[in-house]
Amino acid sequence: MNDSTPPRPERLVLMNPGPVITDDRVRAALAGPDMCHREPEFSDLLTRVRHKTTLAAGGDERHTSVVLTGSGTAAVEAAVSSAVPRDGALLVVDNGHYGERFQHIADAHGIRTHRLELGWATPVDPAAVERALAADQGLTHVAVVHHETSSGMLNDVAAVARIAHAHGREVVVDAVSSIGAEHIALAEDGIDWLAGSANKCLEGAPGLGFVSAARTAFEGLAGAPRRSYYLDLHRHYTAQEKAQAPAFTPGIPAFYAFDEALDLALAEGREARHARYSALAGRLRDGLEELGLEILLPPGQRAASLTAVRIPAGIGYRELHRGLRAEGFVIYSAQEQLAADFFRLSTMGRMTETDIDRFLAALARTLPTRA
């Protein structure tokens, strides 16, 4: 190393909303032994992970989970393409990029939709959901995102579920960026289909998604359309529930890591993890405001795990990212219509107060000097 080479950061802090900084025990679990996925050892691992996932999703003895080797998007697509019947249709509640993703998934599978386009970073209007369902009796399912990660907004999915059930419809919830840290529960909130991911607030490794629902709902897919081969939930459910085996070759190291991460999540508890994330987010947001930076959402609408921040005048996102990366922090750009003006900071994963304080100091050094 010569005098012009910057020192290597002491710790790389991932402030992107997944993959997250994982516990040392989760990373160590990735190095588990080689295993054949058709042997009893993997059957035991799969069964444990499915049970713990259902508990993390707030399920009870009526519920179960199907775990897929794929991202959270794979889980969302599996839920939508499998659950909506041939003669069904989907009400898409869209107030950001991931609400819009529901629309794209439905389009890809030829599912009729009604898109309730509310506008990015606009709270869900329950009355508008009710009007849409009353106006179109052919809508069999409602799709809604719990944590809209494009803005950091937390949507009231329990209210949407109550309205949907009052009209005899089912609800598909994208909980990819919320499960593990925000209040969401299959049984308590009346969620019919919940799609999640291992590598965000559950703090596992990337590579696994899951769908949690009532056992009777999975059984009811027997006569559903086969819109996908790999993402056919009934195929996966039958293999995992009846044979205690995967339908296809799974990402075994990710299962090892998820098994460990679920143990840690269940031991900590959702409320404690929510409090931990909230404390980190509060420390971060206070520091951002002290630096004169603008946060996109008002306090009552923010998730505990993500903050969208306006890019300050006099610097672009790429320069901001480059400067902070050199100091050991990975920040995340906003998406599409927010990308020109905002960036995002996650407080998911094994982040510490020291990480937040170091980040705020690095950010202060990176910002343009005020006149």
Results as ranks from 00 to 15, higher is better:
Gly292Leu: 08
Leu293Glu: 04
Glu294Leu: 02
Glu294Ile: 01
Glu294Phe: 03
Ile295Phe: 03
Ile295Gly: 06
Ile295Arg: 12
Ile295Asn: 03
Leu296Trp: 05
Leu297Ala: 13
Leu297His: 10
Leu297Pro: 06
Leu297Ser: 11
Leu297Trp: 08
Leu297Arg: 12
Pro298Ser: 07
Pro298Phe: 01
Pro298Asp: 09
Pro299Gly: 09
Pro299Met: 08
Pro299Ser: 09
Pro299Glu: 07
Gln301Thr: 04
Gln301Tyr: 12
Arg302Trp: 03
Ala303Lys: 11
Ala303Glu: 05
Ala303Cys: 13
Ala304Thr: 11
Ala304Gly: 07
Ser305Gly: 15
Ser305Gln: 13
Ser305Thr: 13
Leu306Val: 13
Thr307Gln: 04
Thr307Asp: 02
Thr307Glu: 05
Ala308Met: 09
Val309Gln: 11
Val309Asp: 04
Val309Ser: 08
Val309Asn: 08
Arg310Ser: 07
Arg310Ala: 13
Arg310His: 06
Ile311Gln: 13
Pro312Phe: 08
Pro312Arg: 07
Ala313Trp: 11
Gly314Glu: 12
Ile315Lys: 01
Ile315Tyr: 05
Ile315Arg: 02
Gly316Arg: 12
Gly316Asp: 15
Gly316Phe: 00
Gly316His: 09
Tyr317Gln: 07
Arg318Gly: 09
Arg318Trp: 10
Arg318His: 10
Arg318Phe: 08
Glu319Gln: 14
Glu319Asp: 14
Glu319His: 05
His321Asn: 14
His321Gln: 14
His321Arg: 15
Gly323Ser: 11
Gly323Lys: 14
Gly323Arg: 15
Leu324Arg: 03
Leu324Thr: 05
Arg325Pro: 00
Ala326Thr: 00
Ala326Ile: 00
Glu327Ala: 15
Glu327Val: 01
Glu327Met: 07
Gly328Ala: 01
Gly328Pro: 00
Gly328Met: 00
Phe329Gly: 06
Phe329Gln: 04
Val330Glu: 00
Val330Asn: 01
Ile331Ser: 05
Ile331Thr: 14
Tyr332Met: 08
Tyr332Asn: 13
Ser333Trp: 01
Ser333Met: 01
Ser333Phe: 00
Ser333Cys: 06
Ala334Thr: 00
Ala334Cys: 00
Gln335Tyr: 15
Glu336Leu: 14
Glu336Val: 12
